[in-house]
């Protein structure tokens, strides 16, 4: 099986990386139980105690690796970009600002956010690589009207740019507003460009194709301090818990939005980090205990799934009653013409 192989290969490369990290940082020992890994499902660990934002580089390594991998992803933009009626100002064009790397854009799927935190009267800067969290039950994917956005078995949440109309519903329902729109590209140009859709939504796809080929995501591979790790979900979850315990720190992404495939660990509380962040377009905050908003409709959804049984049972009861009534009537010499 291809999938099995992919998972195995990836697991192996994961262990190479974590083994290297374990040796380099001395922070943690490698979990030894290889067989316990959940088949095919990955998670990422982002250790904020390790990330320093690459001060010696012009652009953090994870960002430049991501940019290099995705530099030809977006096809040429239509010129002029159709005006989305009746909201002309809704055009979002980043095609002339491809180099921007201090926020999320359609051309930039990861950036390193800086949080100035007060710790015991001392100002400290926390560097936070931000990208899609790849949620366990992502509303951005499940309620995409065209299923252009989908949660893969390997846990990556992937937008198919050939199917996306750029309506930005995914960004609206994402607690972090992650997906970014590029107008003037995509299938909407061939349908009703002025009236329906407005481009394509772009975001991190966890290097889904590289993962499938048994390679690491660009950001994970490039990080010089091994602040980013990827591996089988159970292993990463265990590793995150272990590190949190060791640093007497905090974890983010485990319960947020119903659970995600990205765990941040930090010696500083995420409440404190969030307080120093201001949510802006392309710059997510870090609110803790974010609930999954779609969970509120799950019970109604379960009622929908039960509805066929309810309907059939009611129909059968009604029809049986009618049959027995008719039988009685026939026995009594009366006939029914219903």
């Amino acid at each position: 099986m291809k999938k099995q192989n992919v998972a195995n290969i990836s697991r192996r490369s994961f262990f190479k990386v974590t083994a290297g990290l374990a040796a380099a940082s001395g922070i943690t020992a490698l979990p030894k139980n290889v067989h316990a890994a959940a088949p095919g499902s990955f998670a990422t660990l982002i250790d904020l105690s390790l990330c320093d934002g690459c001060p010696d580089r012009g652009m953090p390594a994870c960002v430049s690796a991501c940019k290099a991998i995705n530099k030809d992803k977006i096809p040429p933009i239509s010129d002029p970009i159709p005006k989305p009626w009746p909201r002309d100002k809704m055009i979002e064009d980043w095609s002339k600002k491809k180099d921007v790397f201090n926020r999320l854009t359609p051309y930039n799927y990861i950036y390193v956010q800086k949080a100035e935190v007060d710790i015991n009267g001392q100002k400290e800067t926390i560097h936070i690589p931000r990208r899609c969290m790849h949620c366990d039950n992502p509303a951005c994917a499940t309620i995409c009207p065209f299923s252009a956005n989908h949660k893969m078995k390997n846990s990556a949440v992937v937008i198919d740019q050939d199917l996306c109309f750029g309506g930005a519903k995914c960004r609206t329902v994402c607690p972090w507003g992650i997906p970014q729109r590029q107008s003037g590209v995509g299938i909407y140009l061939h349908v009703l460009p002025d009236y329906m859709g407005n481009g394509v939504m772009y975001k991190c796809d966890l290097c889904h194709e590289r993962l499938e080929a048994g390679r690491l995501p660009g950001c994970v591979e490039a990080c010089p301090r091994k602040a980013l790790l990827i591996g089988p979900r159970e292993e990463i979850y265990a590793l995150a818990e272990e590190r949190v315990k060791q640093m007497n720190g905090f974890i983010y992404g485990k319960t947020e939005n119903g659970g995600t495939a990205t765990l941040y660990v930090s010696p500083v509380s995420f409440d404190l980090i969030d307080q120093s962040l201001k949510k802006k377009p392309g710059e997510p905050d870090m609110k803790v205990r974010i609930e999954r908003r779609m969970a509120k409709s799950d019970n109604r959804g379960r009622a929908v799934l039960a509805a066929p049984v309810i309907g059939m049972a009611a129909g059968a009861v009604g029809a049986l009653k009618w049959l027995s009534d008719r039988k009685e009537k026939t026995a009594g010499g009366d006939s029914d013409n219903g």
Partner: peptide, 17 residues
């Protein structure tokens, strides 16, 4: 819920009759 219950009811109820 209403739509699906009604549809399944319809098929079974009138089918059995």
């Amino acid at each position: 819920v209403i739509f699906v219950v009604a549809a399944f009811f319809h098929v079974v109820f009138h089918g059995m009759r």
